[in-house]
């Protein structure tokens, strides 16, 4: 049986404008978690019913801790940003499939993150044994850089050119003349669309993590679907459930 559990806030800090880093002590979620999975966080304010799905940024299995790095985008995430050490929060997870690290082991791999989509890339980068190219795209302010620098070669891009290359993750790839045998990416849809096209043009196997508003988070309500190229085995239409069949999909499987 799956469990929704109370987790204790170990610490929380603001790491960039509107971006928070939250460490949780979990009874059992951290032990089961894989990179690229997510959790559903529930608000204390009962007027906000639906869970907020937040990706796992770091998994400390040994100490049963999870690190979530999230952006304040509305009232729910604003509530989370006020959580203090010792407070409890209701969490369901781990949910979703995660990145298929086995597909990339030993190869040259792009691990690409854009904006808050950088968060789930960190744990994947930590666990993956491969030739890693960590390509991070920011609007203007960098975060999690130190953590990434510990696990591989980092290439950064900012929209305004304030740090690293001016442009996006693919501009960084072009400018640095980088190449890869496998791509893992998470970020805004516009970025994922571009990465998917790049991977298709270069015939590189590519997995992308997609975001959508969720209700149940477990595959029952069909709120968070994305268009699939083929008729999906479960839905029998051109739809896949992001929460259950994803959030990570082989880029060629889905239409963005």
């Amino acid at each position: 049986m799956k469990k929704k559990e109370w987790c204790m806030v170990e610490c929380q800090e603001k790491i960039a404008a509107g971006i928070y880093s939250l460490w949780l002590e979990t009874p059992s979620i951290a032990e089961q978690a894989r990179p690229g999975q997510f959790v559903s966080l529930y608000c204390k304010d009962g007027s906000r019913l639906l869970p907020r799905s937040i990706s796992l940024c770091e998994i400390d299995r040994k100490n049963r801790r999870l690190r979530l790095v999230y952006q304040v985008v509305g009232k729910g995430t604003l509530e989370f940003s006020t959580l203090k050490t010792g407070e409890q929060i209701s969490v369901l997870g781990p949910l979703g499939n995660g990145f298929p690290l086995e597909e990339a082991a030993g190869k040259t791999v792009f691990l690409m993150g854009g904006g808050i989509g950088i968060a789930p890339i960190l744990e994947s980068a930590k666990q993956l044994q491969a030739e890693k190219r960590l390509i991070l795209g920011y609007r203007n302010e960098c975060f999690l850089l130190k953590e990434f620098e510990k696990v591989g070669t980092v290439y950064t891009a900012t929209e305004n050119g304030s740090f690293g290359i001016k442009g996006n993750v693919l501009d960084a790839v072009r400018e640095q003349e980088l190449s890869a045998e496998v791509i893992f990416a998470c970020g805004p849809t516009s970025m994922l669309r571009a990465v998917k096209q790049y991977a298709e043009r270069k015939s590189i196997p590519c997995w992308i993590s997609i975001e959508e508003k969720m209700a149940c988070g477990i595959g029952a309500c069909l709120a968070c679907v994305c268009r699939s190229r083929e008729v999906d085995r479960h839905s029998h239409v051109h739809n896949k459930r992001i929460c259950k069949d994803g959030p990570v999909f082989e880029a060629s499987e889905v239409e963005l």
Partner: peptide, 15 residues
């Protein structure tokens, strides 16, 4: 089989 509507398919409201 019915494909359903485009996304976003849900929105939270007060309560």
């Amino acid at each position: 089989p019915w494909p359903g509507n485009p996304t976003p398919r849900i929105a939270e409201i007060y309560g």
